[in-house]
Design a protein around this nucleic acid. Structure first.
Lengths: 209, 209
DNA sequence: GTCTATATACTGATAGAC
DNA sequence: GTCTATCAGTATATAGAC
């Protein structure tokens, strides 16, 4: 997903060139400024090239943003799947949920401009670009639905909870952190623990009667 | 907040005219399409006037969007304050939280294009516009922090919960519903109950040992 | 693979008629 | 209070030189 050719020596000081470099820069700018405010001229300038040169690598702005959106889902999907499958064999429902929440949040806040760009601009791009991203999104959503369904079948999740709605609520809550998270005030790691605490057990003090 | 003059008879069929009408239309378009994609020409066309005419009512695009943002916070703030103060005298922590959550969510999903536009475009507008909206936002945030602090002081909220972080998590989760809520699949009313259930008590089944 | 130059359309904003 | 006409700036995209 990241630009690999840029690590070679004897290159332009910018560091970002070629298709991968343009894509890296575009993802960062989209995350920072949104879709409508980022022009091809801005992307080109940040990558150290001229606007016209972009069309050697991509056919249109939509093609760039579509590539960013797809990569964004793939990164967070792979991160979540790996985190869950890395757990010990007999891991309980709570451990599984905590690992999945942590992986999703860290992908957004610590790891990937692509994943955070996806969350921030998906609602702003043209309908055709959204449609192109749907298959990739659906696969990630299915991963969560399967995980939650398994946990509910084991009896660890309240029976009255609707899986689809819970997934939308949980992912939405985690994604919303992009609007206010400040690494100076706490780590994504610690924040993921708080989210797990709240979603798993709630915020009300329990009576010990 | 809504256009009042438009209810008079013998007017242009569009229904939206004058400063209030322009603002109503702008709020709806911003909510639907985001900040960058909505031009003054689009706003004017939807309001049934020409682009140049907008400048009789507003000095700039930023002035329009700033007015939309402020109104958006004021609507949801007033809605939440009223809902809480309308509760019976001795209402418990759970009833208060449920009423506040319900009011916030219904303002976003059922009532106001201004409130939903605020949530959707705040992260996309120029820094100067965000700054102008800060005072209004802070007042609403303080309302929530006071409410949550009172409940925690009463011992109904877990002591280890950080108030500011909880407020960010809760409001963020509720605001995120704008990205996926579909009135055909359920009411905002019912959804607010589910959010309260999850945040108050969590999703894990409790052992009855 | 990147450059310059350019075509075409749209942007926010202004001036003056009615 | 809305209109028409227009300005300067910027948008995506293309063509051809190097």
């Amino acid at each position: 997903m990241a630009n690999t050719t840029a690590s070679k020596l004897n290159e332009i000081p910018r560091g970002a060139v070629g298709r991968g470099g343009v894509l890296d820069v575009a993802a960062r700018l989209f995350r920072e400024q949104g879709y409508g405010s980022v022009s091809l001229r801005k992307i080109a300038a940040a990558a150290g090239i001229k606007a016209g040169s972009i069309y050697y690598h991509f056919g249109s702005k939509d093609e760039i943003v579509a590539a960013v959106l797809d990569a964004g889902i793939q990164v967070v999907h792979e991160s979540m799947r790996q985190a869950v499958s890395a757990l010990p064999e007999g891991a309980g429902a709570e451990a599984i949920l905590r690992a999945a929440i942590r992986a999703h949040l860290r992908a957004l806040l610590d790891v990937s401009d692509y994943s955070s760009a996806n969350v921030r601009i998906f609602g702003q791009v043209p309908q055709s670009v959204r449609d192109a991203n749907l298959h990739t999104r659906r696969a990630y959503e299915a991963e969560w639905d399967n995980l939650l369904s398994r946990i509910q079948a084991d009896g660890a999740l309240k029976r009255e909870v609707d899986i689809r709605r819970l997934r939308l609520m949980l992912i939405g809550a985690l994604n919303a952190t992009l609007e206010w998270f400040d690494p100076h005030r706490g780590s994504a790691e610690a924040l993921s623990r708080t989210y797990a605490d709240v979603f798993l057990n709630g915020i009300l003090e329990r009576q010990e009667t």
